[in-house]
Design a protein around this nucleic acid. Structure first.
Lengths: 337, 337
DNA sequence: TTGAAAGCGCTAACAA
DNA sequence: TTGTTAGCGCTTTCAA
């Protein structure tokens, strides 16, 4: 049942070191020898024992995924992406949901890394910009890659999407549909990446010569409840925007709910756009126009960057950008006037 | 930086075996000795190297979590629950999302278990009732626990919730509100646990002397789209139910959307109830009345059962039941007449 | 109740 | 290009 490196070496008529070389894709093995070994491995269905590997090699072949994001869909997408890369490269993944507002978060993470001998970690927002954690990782000299960081981009490799541009494009679409009175509900200030979205909105208005109306810009907190509050403030007056762009889908859902309550028809009287394309987006009525981030691909890429860093021992802070897509559904229509 | 068992043994003036005994909570250590060792461990901040442990002990201290459930919220809740228990007991968790309709799923799982030397696995629906996988696990003699199984409950320990009763209670509430024309949208037949819900609905009607109207019972597939189709069938005729109970929230969301399209007011003209209390439930308008399963607690309990099984080497098929809760929101009202 | 010694299966350093 | 040897840090006999 349990096949070891010795069995393979014996069958292939080589030393265990040679088997080890083949398994680890090290150079300096004659193709003939390599083939012999590979054949033996296949015949015996040999799988290296990862505990023995880790112990001897002082590496765990385990990556850590740290996240404090409350969105289940986002987290699942990230997990799937990272796992895809991990599986391809024979690495395991340890997931570690954490509470980013916990003051002991840094200690917790250091402990985790020590105890599990994690080879490298991937950080997702909002942990991505958590300075104490970043400092601790630097101090440990542990390779890490960040997904969608906004701070100190030069300290680590990272992956991001063109949030700002996408928000710009969405705003431009609204303008193209005749809207000039466009409200915006900002995202949680702790989730810095989300602030790009506001910037995109702002510059689109500016580029189209539409003045910013501060009354129509509200500070949300990403939650449905916060969106509801902002929506009421935006919609309770007779003079109200003809379109509202929310920095995430949950808040956009809240806008739609408040509009329904006020008897405001969507999209006839109010256009609504969200951001994230969460599962709720197409379960709303009318279906929500929104922006989709390539979360899974970003996570895959992040893991690739991390593994590359582990192999080459470099820590160049390369950044990769993957594009978001506008998803036009039914909640946006021409401006009524 | 790296403290080993030898360091602890030296400081505590005992042999490494004694340290090992203390760490593993084995019997036959004098309290005095134990305290000495514990003090040394604390002083040095010693953490056993899990690779060495696994290698020597031929156990990985890793549990596997297998899931094929498409609902991100469900999966995240399960993960959090299982992780909670794992952390308490010093175990790690390997997550393994899989496609339950993949014909090679069984081989994939066997490979995974072999390769990672997983000590035991937790299965969630619909993998819970996947006979080939269950047989394979039995053949491997690998301890496993199932969450919400419906088939062959005697072959493994399991955790479940009182779905059927909850559905009964919800139906009874609808009846108490004056509804007698209650439609039901069934869940996906592959997700067997969901069929309990239909049973609950049926017996509630029966117990209250309301005849079953087969035209008002539709087979859904858990998806929003399937719910939409069923909802149209239920709502397009003038003679239509005054309440619809859907076997999950996504389909209930679809019912609400269709009702909105038809201009049917909720809850004035139609009451809607769902099941699962997913995040969409309170983002709908009006907020959806639904049933909440204690998913996280079920997962915690499942992991506890699994760890118990690992310790005691028994495989008694004990079952644990945790109760679901009715969440009454705004989508249910008195029957209009 | 405690300890000594022999591995677990692999990688790393060095030799050949 | 290949092999030999010595551990990695722990658990498991078995003995004391």
């Amino acid at each position: 049942m349990k096949v070891t490196i010795d069995d393979v070496a014996e069958l292939a008529q080589v030393s265990i070191k040679t088997v080890s070389r083949v398994v680890n894709q090290e150079p300096n093995v004659r193709p003939v020898t390599r083939d012999k070994v590979l054949a033996a491995i296949a015949q015996l269905n040999y799988r290296p024992n990862s505990s023995a590997r880790s112990l001897a090699g002082n590496r765990s072949y385990v990556l850590g995924l740290l996240y404090g994001n409350p969105s289940a869909n986002y987290v699942i997408d990230v997990q799937v992406g990272v796992l895809t890369t991990c599986r391809q490269h024979g690495y395991d993944l340890l997931i570690h949901p954490c509470n980013y507002s916990d003051p002991d978060i840094t200690i917790e993470i250091i402990e985790l890394i020590h105890q599990k001998r994690i080879d490298g970690v991937i950080l997702t927002p909002p942990l991505t910009d958590h300075l104490p954690v970043l400092d601790a990782l630097k101090a440990l000299d542990l390779p890490f890659v960040r997904v969608a960081p906004t701070l100190n981009k030069n300290i680590s490799p990272y992956v991001e999407t063109n949030d700002g541009e996408a928000a710009y494009q969405m705003t431009a679409r609204l303008i193209a549909s005749g809207h000039t009175d466009i409200g915006f509900i900002c995202g949680h200030p702790d989730h810095r990446a989300v602030t790009h979205r506001y910037e995109g909105y702002r510059s689109a208005l500016q580029d189209h010569g539409i003045p910013l109306n501060p009354h129509w810009i509200k500070q949300g907190l990403n939650s449905f409840e916060s969106g509801e509050k902002c929506a009421r403030e935006l919609l309770q007056n007779a003079r109200r925007p003809t379109a509202i762009f929310a920095a995430n889908d949950e808040m956009a859902a809240a806008v739609m709910m408040v509009a329904h309550q006020y008897g405001i028809k969507i999209p006839a009287e109010l256009s609504v756009a969200g951001f994230d394309d969460t599962s709720v987006a197409h379960q709303l009525w009318p279906a929500l126009t929104t922006v989709r981030q390539p979360v899974q691909q970003m996570a895959e890429k992040a893991a690739e960057l991390l593994l590359g860093q582990l192999k080459r021992k470099d820590g160049q802070a390369v950044g990769h950008v993957l594009n978001s897509t506008l998803i036009m559904r039914d909640s946006v229509g021409p401006a009524a006037r």
